[in-house]
Design a protein around this nucleic acid. Structure first.
Lengths: 243, 243
DNA sequence: GCCGATTTGTCCGTATGTATC
DNA sequence: CGATACATACGGACAAATCGG
């Protein structure tokens, strides 16, 4: 199966930028030149470039051109706008991941849980507590809630590996959208027990709701991060046009 | 000057969704129907819809359609991927903003400052400390660094209002890209003095580098947020195609 | 299980507008 | 002013996924 054309071009330009084939602040070839280089239409080029804009690699300017603003030091740490499992992001950063399952139970959502997670009352759920290690350090404490009738036959053994791999490869569930909220919260007894917080008395919390391709929210997860290792990156673009 | 067509359609659909004209999980009209409704080409419709996808309002599925996944409770709080001044975001959330300038000086970047901010050594900078209030509560302590030769003639009076308004409307600097990093840090004496942190001993820190249309990084800002009022939202989309 | 209709996804070519040099 | 560059918009073609008969 052939790659999508705009993905190929996107990747080609991306690696060129990462390999320093364009200087910081240097202009990329114009759209018309890229059309000749890649043998495609202007729309396809523009689509590849706009993906690079979103990732903070380049900057476009009407009448001028497209400028490389990639800085290796900044870009390495974290993805934006993408969904990534713990295992995936660990491997990408060349770190050794380990996961310990603290608790694996089945519960029914009461009003309190429903209000916090967004599941309807009386939903049948798996509730899993997991501790994630990176290079031997306990960094993230995860509270996962999965809809039982979608994430069927989840087991403790699966949870010790990658739940996402199981959902995608075994159950063929495609994960489509995820809404995340980041906050800072005071530590609880459980946090203190498993994460070594040192002097800190609070931690970074990422709560997320995940939807499958049928539009059903099937996962709610709260990730509690050791603050000294938490780092989240984002590239913003000012859009006069949109607002 | 007329609005851009895809912006009009985007806004029209957005307000319809926010006003509940489509149920949660309901399908929007198909692209072909929207073409008739708005009298435009398919590309234009698709562009408006993809903006809604990015904001987590809808979900598209090949062969099926476009589904409304907007939840009022979640969406209200914060923007993603956009650049917004403190004043703008306060007004959007119907809150009364106030800004107090704690310190307004001119400095030259030594190695320490250069390393932290990303400016070259010996850059001539404005350094400004500002305290932002919302509804009378001190919530954010900002450390701003601006390149003097770009943000020319900045004054304490301007800093008490909106620096961004001055840059855009008076100096006609267009702000294009901004790279942000979120972390959690221990509080300092200054934080403790001006923000009422209660039991918390740390806060949410957003560091950002801002670029103008010439590709020059002219601003570095560190925003230190009171943790109990900090909330950052993000909508992620899993893209098999892109990676 | 197959076929056709519908719907979104990809790609192309062209024309016009607008900003920069 | 003209040439170049990106931005917007149109229309058409085909692919891929979904759904109903």
């Amino acid at each position: 199966m052939p790659q999508k054309k705009y993905t190929e071009i996107y990747r080609s330009l991306k690696t060129k930028i990462e390999n320093g084939e364009y200087e910081f602040q240097e202009m990329l070839p114009s759209e018309n030149q890229l059309i000749l280089t890649y043998g495609c239409s202007r729309n396809t080029i523009r689509r590849a470039i706009s993906a690079l804009v979103i990732e903070g690699y380049v900057q476009t300017m009407q009448g001028k051109g497209v400028r490389n603003i990639f800085r290796p030091a900044l870009q390495t740490s974290f993805t934006i706008g993408g969904i990534e499992s713990f295992k995936e992001s660990a491997l990408r950063n060349h770190q050794i991941p380990k996961t310990q399952v603290l608790c694996f139970t089945e519960i029914t959502a009461d009003e309190k849980i429903a209000g916090r997670t967004g599941f309807p009352v009386d939903s049948q759920l798996y509730y899993i507590q997991r501790l994630h290690y990176l290079d031997g350090k306990a960094l993230i404490l995860n509270h996962n809630y999965f809809l039982k009738n979608i994430a069927v036959n989840l087991t403790k053994e699966i949870a010790e590996g990658s739940i996402y791999e199981y959902l995608e490869n075994e159950l063929h569930i495609s994960i489509v959208t995820s809404k995340r909220v980041m906050t800072v919260e005071k530590m609880t007894e459980i946090d203190e027990k498993y994460l070594h917080l040192g002097d800190y008395n609070c931690l970074a919390v990422v709560s997320s709701q995940t939807f499958n391709s049928d539009g059903v929210m099937f996962e709610y997860t709260q990730s509690r991060h050791r603050p000294d290792y938490f780092r989240f990156q984002d590239n913003a673009v000012r859009r006069k046009a949109m607002e």
